[in-house]
């Protein structure tokens, strides 16, 4: 399957950050949508059916961990990478316990993030076959 087929949803309340990261991932042949808070992200899951979600932790309204929990409850096959500037080791452990694929610090190196997205996508394929 071509990398072009990877659907990514970037969820971050920093609009400029989410849009710029989305643009960079599109330049790497991914299909990328954006959401600017947890509620908006959850409302897009059905229609956009992302393979991988890049999720911020501390957002207005719903906390990233709550969003992760809801994603995993309704769409367990979707892989979630937490990308946060403010996470602790305990947050990382909690994210993995809740089924998060990985936990990265913001700002992440784009090549490293791309590699993680690809791995997360492979994981999703394994789970859906």
């Amino acid at each position: 399957m071509k990398q072009k087929d990877i659907k990514v949803l970037v969820v971050d309340d920093e609009v400029a950050f989410a849009n710029t990261l989305a643009q960079r991932l599109r330049m790497r042949d991914m299909e990328v949508g954006t959401a600017y808070d947890g509620e908006q992200a959850l409302s897009k899951l059905n229609k956009e059916a992302p393979d991988v979600i890049i999720l911020d932790l501390k957002m207005p309204g719903m906390h990233g961990m709550d969003v992760l929990q809801e994603i995993k409850a309704g769409y367990p096959e979707i892989q979630v990478i937490l990308l946060t500037g403010h996470g602790t080791d305990r947050d990382g452990e909690e994210a993995r316990r809740l089924g998060g694929f990985d936990f990265l610090n913001k700002p992440a190196d784009i090549d490293h993030l791309e590699c993680k997205i690809r791995k997360a996508f492979q994981e999703k394929l394994k789970r859906t076959v």
Binding site: E14, A16, F17, T20, L21, R24, G85, K106, P107, I110
Partner: peptide, 9 residues
């Protein structure tokens, strides 16, 4: 940290 992340991207 958010401003720096946007500048980096």
């Amino acid at each position: 940290k958010n401003y720096l992340a946007i500048i980096k991207e």
